[in-house]
């Protein structure tokens, strides 16, 4: 698997870019010697990580768990909501409108409220992650469920298909490409939500780490957390991408020689 990833030119190119920018960064720090409080060298950042790797891994694990839980709940809840919205005019007018209104509030501003409601444990962090991630899931899934060819639905009616058959055999598979598009956005949003949750209240997680390190002017520590976050975000995104390839081998974007996203 890993070998195959490396063999893909896209992965190789990405690695080259990352390594090259780290070298340029290191060289610039050597050359201009800014205060380590402002910009530490990559070597100093790696040294910081190696001084206590398990601490960072533990905090990363917590943030990862919150992100994954928030994402999973957002997908499950979002798909159910989307189906409800598509099948009911009443729910479309109520839930959908409410959701749009909710989304226009800067959700970061709501995070303190979740702390008041749910305390300082894991629940408020997962909740913020869900709140951020659910919107793209619902919007994209509604779009996907509605994009079924009307002739296909006529055919189902002529064949006396039940509403459940139409949902599971036609609408849902048809919505999968849109759902995955929403999931790709949502996975990053869930990570943002987890960090925001940790910023507002908490004693674990990379968000908390950043906050503490900032209080101590420990810039290398902030950078370690940031790099771990970006690594996590990237890996999570490509996991969703990988799942999409497995689930939608039939979709236009996945076909060989179709151009576009193919690598």
């Amino acid at each position: 698997m890993f070998k195959r990833l490396l063999a893909e030119s896209r992965t190789r190119d990405a690695l080259v870019i990352v390594v090259a920018s780290l070298f340029i960064w290191e060289a610039c720090v050597e050359l201009f010697a800014p205060s380590p409080l402002i910009l530490p060298a990559p070597s100093a950042i790696f040294a910081e990580f190696w001084s206590s790797p398990w601490v960072f891994i533990r905090h990363s694990g917590y943030t990862l768990a919150v992100t994954a839980a928030g994402f999973a709940i957002a997908v499950a809840l979002g798909v159910v909501l989307a189906v409800a919205i598509v099948y009911s005019r009443f729910l479309e007018r109520t839930i959908y409108t409410l959701l749009v209104a909710l989304n226009s509030i800067p959700k970061v501003a709501l995070a303190p409220l979740f702390v008041i409601w749910l305390g300082t444990g894991t629940e408020p962090k997962v909740s913020v992650a869900v709140m951020l991630a659910i919107f793209p899931i619902v919007i994209d899934t509604v779009l996907g469920l509605r994009s079924v060819d009307p002739d296909m639905l006529s055919l189902a009616r002529v064949s006396k298909a039940s509403p459940w058959q139409v949902l599971f055999k036609i609408r849902f598979p048809c919505a999968l490409p849109s759902l995955f598009a929403g999931m790709k956005v949502a996975i990053s949003f869930a990570l943002v939500g987890a960090i925001v949750g940790e910023f507002v209240a908490g004693g674990t997680g990379l968000g908390f780490q950043i906050l503490v390190a900032q209080g101590q002017f420990d810039t290398p520590r902030v950078f370690v957390s940031l790099l771990l976050l970006s690594l996590m975000g990237t890996v999570l995104f490509y996991l969703v991408d990988f799942a999409e390839r497995l689930c939608l081998p039939w979709h236009v974007s996945q076909r060989p020689h179709a151009g576009g996203a193919g690598g």
Binding site: D149, D151, L155, V158, S159, A161, Q165, K169, C174
Partner: peptide, 30 residues
């Protein structure tokens, strides 16, 4: 829709994720 009816549209509306055989079997499945 009356019984014992078959319909063909201008667009073939085949489902992309199903094989040709599975597409032909769709109405029977319903």
């Amino acid at each position: 829709p009356p019984d014992r009816l078959g319909v063909v549209f201008q667009r073939d509306v085949l489902l992309d994720w199903r094989t040709i055989l599975d597409n032909v079997l769709l109405s029977a499945e319903f």
